[in-house]
C-alpha cells in the first residue's frame, strides 16, 4: 500500500506537467477502443439472404460503379460512340469477382489497360457486387472452391494433373504470359500480367471470363478439369526450387545476356585490371629495377 501511495504520489507530481493532458487523452482513447473491440459483435454476422445480398450489392454498385457502367449496369456509350463502361448484363459474377477482387475495378481513371492495385472492397462487398451483377443476367458465376483447388488430391493425382496442365499452359497461355507465367508484352503498351502472385480462384475466373485482351477460354474450350490442371501446373512450378540457381526474373535470354555482360565480362575485366596492375614481387633493391626498361 505504501509502495502504491508512493508511486501514486510520484505520478501526481506530473499531473500539471505540459504533457499530462495528452497522456490522459491517449489513455482514454486506448481504453475506449480496446473495450469496443472486446465487446462489439464480431464479424460472425451471417451474410444475409440472396435478396439482401443483391440489395447490398446494388447499393455499392450505385455508388462505385454506375458512373461508367450505368445505373442498371446497362453500360454507357459516349457521344462519339466509345464505351465509357461496357454493359454488365450477362457478364456474370465471376468477372466481377476477378475485376474487383484483384483491385482492377473500380478504375482510378480510364486508360488502355486496367492494372491491379490495392483492393477497394472487402470479400463480403465483392460477393455482394458479384451477386448483384449475376442477378442482372446469367453469366459464369464465381466458381466453387472444388473447381480450382488442388487441396485434398493425392501426390500422384496432383502430379498427373500438373503434367497435363503444363502442356495446356504451354499451348494456350505461354505465348502471352511467358513460359513460367512471369508475364509478357502485348501490342500498344499493354501487358499480359505475371501469374505468379495471382490466386488460383482469380486464374480460374480469368480463363472463364477473358478479361481485357485475354481470350475467353469457356468451359467448352478448356474443360473445368483442364483449367484446374493449368492451376496445378502453375502451383507446381511455383513450388519447385530454383533448380539452376537465381532465375534473374524468369524472362528468358535477355536477362541472361545482361548478366553475362555485367557479371561475367565485367568480373573478368576487373580481374584483368587487377592482374595487370600488379607487377612482379621482387626483393631486389629499387635501383636494380632500373634494368627492366632496357629490355
Amino acid at each position: 500500500m505504501r509502495l502504491l501511495n508512493r508511486s501514486a504520489g510520484r505520478l501526481s507530481r506530473h499531473r500539471r506537467g505540459p504533457l499530462a493532458g495528452l497522456v490522459v487523452l491517449l489513455f482514454g482513447l486506448l481504453l475506449t477502443g480496446g473495450l469496443y473491440a472486446a465487446f462489439s459483435p464480431a464479424s460472425a454476422e451471417k451474410t444475409g439472404t440472396d435478396a439482401e445480398q443483391i440489395a447490398e450489392g446494388r447499393k455499392l454498385f450505385l455508388t462505385s460503379c454506375s458512373f461508367c457502367h450505368g445505373q442498371n449496369g446497362e453500360g454507357i456509350t459516349t457521344r462519339n460512340g466509345n464505351q465509357l463502361g461496357p454493359s454488365l448484363i450477362g457478364v456474370g459474377g465471376a468477372a466481377v469477382d476477378f475485376q474487383v477482387g484483384t483491385g482492377r475495378m473500380p478504375l482510378v481513371q480510364p486508360g488502355h489497360q486496367t492494372t491491379p492495385k490495392d483492393v477497394t472492397f472487402n470479400d463480403e462487398e465483392t460477393a455482394a457486387l458479384a451477386a448483384y451483377v449475376q442477378s442482372l443476367g446469367a453469366g459464369p458465376d464465381i466458381p466453387s472452391e472444388a473447381l480450382y483447388s488442388t487441396e485434398g488430391l493425392s501426390e500422384e493425382e496432383r502430379e498427373e494433373l500438373a503434367v497435363r496442365g503444363g502442356q495446356i499452359f504451354l499451348t494456350n497461355c505461354s505465348a502471352c504470359h511467358n513460359f513460367e507465367g512471369s508475364g509478357g508484352a502485348m501490342p500498344r503498351g499493354k501487358v499480359a500480367p505475371s501469374l505468379q502472385k495471382t490466386s488460383s480462384k482469380h486464374i480460374y475466373e480469368a480463363m472463364l471470363t477473358g478479361p481485357g485482351e485475354m481470350d475467353n477460354f469457356s468451359n467448352g474450350n478448356i474443360a473445368p478439369e483442364d483449367k484446374k490442371a493449368v492451376i496445378a501446373y502453375l502451383e507446381a512450378i511455383e513450388e519447385n526450387p530454383d533448380y539452376g540457381g537465381f532465375g534473374m526474373g524468369g524472362i528468358g535470354p535477355v536477362s541472361e545476356g545482361m548478366y553475362a555482360w555485367l557479371v561475367g565480362i565485367g568480373g573478368c575485366v576487373a580481374f584483368a585490371f587487377w592482374i595487370a596492375s600488379h607487377t612482379t614481387r621482387t626483393d631486389k633493391k629499387p635501383q636494380a629495377a632500373g634494368g627492366e626498361a632496357d629490355q
Binding site: 499451348t171 505465348a175 513460359f179 509478357g184 535470354p253
Partner: peptide, 15 residues
C-alpha cells in the same frame, strides 16, 4: 520450363 519443341507452341520472351 520451356517444354519440348512443338511447332504449334510459342512463349512470350522468346529471344
Amino acid at each position: 520450363k520451356y517444354g519440348p519443341y512443338d511447332p504449334s507452341k510459342v512463349t512470350a520472351g522468346s529471344q
